[in-house]
Amino acid sequence: MSEADVILLDGDCGLCTRLAVFMTPRMSSAASLRFLAIESEEGQAIISTFPQHIQDADTVYLVRNNKPYIRSSAALRFLFYMRWYYAMWYPVGWVIPLPIRNLVYRFVARYRHRIFRKPASCVFPMPKTDQG
């Protein structure tokens, strides 16, 4: 069992990088979450332990309590690591049916490289800040 949960993000994605940089200082002080690039050796090793249909998803992955989540489910569960005023939005998002959430997620994922510039360098893994 890992000591921290892991979120695997595209290290070449400007949106992923910006969201991680924005959210890191806003995480709960009790949160235990590591950011990793999907492309990293450790990221690929983690993904290789998932069932094949999850490995083939080519998306954001969240491993929470040793269970993998993908797409909008991963993004929504990320709120559990945030301070209360972000985490309170989880039930609101969960009311939206999964097919609709994933449709929106896939739309954003398809166009993210056109809208957000590729970062100059991968910022993952990112240290968790000690802000509370």
Results as ranks from 00 to 15, higher is better:
Thr24Leu: 07
Thr17Pro: 04
Leu19Tyr: 08
Leu8Met: 00
Lys67Gly: 07
Thr17Asp: 04
Thr49Gly: 07
Val92Leu: 12
Lys128Asp: 08
Gly11Met: 08
Lys118Gly: 05
Thr24Phe: 03
Ala37Tyr: 01
Gln55Met: 04
Met82Glu: 11
Phe35Gln: 08
Phe80His: 14
Pro97Trp: 08
Ser73Trp: 10
Tyr85Phe: 12
Val60Asn: 01
Trp89Ser: 12
Pro99His: 01
Trp84Tyr: 11
Ser73Asn: 15
Leu62Met: 00
Val95Glu: 11
Pro97His: 05
Phe35Pro: 00
Val123Cys: 07
Gln131Glu: 14
His53Arg: 13
Ala37His: 02
Pro97Arg: 10
Met88Leu: 14
Leu79Arg: 06
Asp10Val: 04
Ser40Gly: 02
Ser28Gln: 06
Pro97Phe: 06
Tyr61Leu: 05
Gly43Val: 09
Ala30Met: 14
Ala87Ser: 14
Asp130Glu: 13
Tyr90Arg: 13
Pro25Met: 00
Pro68Gly: 04
Ala75Val: 07
Phe124Glu: 08
Trp89Leu: 13
Val21Thr: 14
Leu76Asp: 12
Gly93Leu: 07
Tyr86Ala: 01
Ile115Cys: 03
Val63Met: 02
Met23Asp: 10
Trp89Glu: 10
Arg18Glu: 12
Gly14Lys: 04
Ser32Phe: 03
Cys16Asn: 03
Leu9Trp: 02
Tyr69Gly: 03
Ala109Phe: 02
Ser48Trp: 05
Val123Glu: 09
Gly14Asn: 03
Arg83Met: 09
Pro68Ala: 06
Val92Lys: 09
Ile46Arg: 02
Asp12Gln: 15
Asn102Ile: 06
Ser29Cys: 14
Leu19His: 02
Glu3Gln: 15
Gln44Ser: 08
Pro125Tyr: 03
Pro125Gly: 01
Ala37Ile: 04
Gln44Ile: 12
Arg77Leu: 15
Phe124His: 04
Glu3Val: 11
Met27Lys: 04
Asp10Thr: 07
Trp84Ile: 13
Thr24Glu: 15
Ile38Ala: 03
Tyr111Ile: 14
Asn102Met: 05
Phe78Asp: 08
Ala31Ser: 09
Tyr69Gln: 14
Pro125His: 00
Glu3Phe: 12
Phe80Ala: 13
Arg64Met: 12
Leu33Val: 02
Leu19Lys: 08
Phe22Val: 10
His53Tyr: 09
Asp10Asn: 06
Thr17Tyr: 00
Arg71Trp: 06
Pro91Val: 09
Asn66Glu: 15
Thr129Arg: 14
Ser73Leu: 10
Val104Trp: 09
Met82Arg: 12
Ala30Arg: 15
Arg112Trp: 09
Phe124Val: 02
Asn102Arg: 06
